[in-house]
């Protein structure tokens, strides 16, 4: 059996904010179909890492390699802005914690889903609409809501719409920043189930940033624990959570799971 190559590789990523260190010497590999959870308290450097991995923030040191569908290695931070942005709206996705940051709130759900397709040259209203309807069904939003603006949606629906908007171009790698943050527990469960199914069916690779260990356990295959800008522990998700070794991970697990 031929081992597939990683879709994402980070080599010694470091980010400084002046004197302060946002993230230090993080390396990782992510394979197709794999969900990598990054956990840690706020300020631990998870968002900095996610921003560097997704090409949205220049690292002070290190590089990020994305391997595209043809197997070509692309240094995300060496690409021109145009190429990077094109990549971000075709083969990559980014799901924001707040759907308002990832959706166009003043245009209809259908147009939100269709935007990436139109950016890629889609110019057929009938086809755009058919695709939008298909995706609404996949994310469990009733078809008649296609013409509503997201402002009329509940928080959970907005988040599902944001996911559909990202996945419509069939990306290979999706970055998620606290995708279930700010949602009710019942709404969260539904979203988690949906994400799990989509990840499995599309063979997506996902970098998931979350401070919620329960979410990390249910969604991710592997976990990285960040503390003060460094990765202090990593491994299989259930192993890290059930048998934590680093003092910080133990603190995290004991305070959150029992709290």
């Amino acid at each position: 059996m031929n081992e597939p190559l990683p879709v994402l590789e980070a080599e010694s990523l470091t980010r400084r904010y002046g004197e302060r260190l946002g993230c230090r010497d993080v390396s990782l590999k992510l394979w197709p179909g794999e969900v990598l959870g990054i956990v840690g308290e706020s300020g631990s450097g998870k968002s900095t890492l996610l921003n560097m991995l997704s090409g949205r923030m220049e690292p002070s040191e290190g590089r990020v390699i994305y391997r595209n569908a043809c197997g070509t290695e692309l240094d995300l931070h060496a690409l021109s802005e145009g190429e990077r942005r094109r990549l971000l709206r075709t083969e990559l996705g980014y799901v924001h914690q707040n759907p308002r940051d990832g959706l166009r709130m003043q245009v209809s759900a259908g147009a939100n889903i269709g935007e990436r397709l139109m950016a890629a040259g889609g110019r057929n209203y009938g086809k755009l609409r058919a695709t939008a309807l298909e995706w609404l069904e996949k994310v469990e939003i009733a078809a008649p809501r296609i013409d509503d603006i997201p402002a009329r949606y509940s928080g959970g629906m907005q988040q599902r719409l944001q996911i559909a908007r990202n996945l419509v171009t069939g990306p290979r790698l999706v970055f998620m920043d606290e995708p279930t943050g700010g949602l009710d527990v019942s709404v969260q469960a539904r979203l988690l189930d949906l994400l799990r199914r989509l990840v499995r069916d599309m063979g997506l690779a996902v970098v998931l940033v979350t401070h919620d260990l329960a979410v990390a356990r249910l969604l991710s295959h592997r976990l990285m624990v960040m503390y003060h800008g460094e990765v202090v522990e990593q491994g299989l998700a259930d192993q890290v959570l059930d048998d934590p070794h680093h003092p910080y991970t133990q603190l995290l697990v004991s305070s959150i799971l029992q709290g």
């Binding site: 145009g82 942005r85 245009v107 269709g114 935007e115 990436r116 139109m118 209203y125």
Partner: peptide
């Protein structure tokens, strides 16, 4: 960058 998907959103 010739990113004109947005303009077509308006037409949609």
């Amino acid at each position: 960058l010739e990113e004109y998907g947005l303009m077509n959103v308006k037409i949609y």
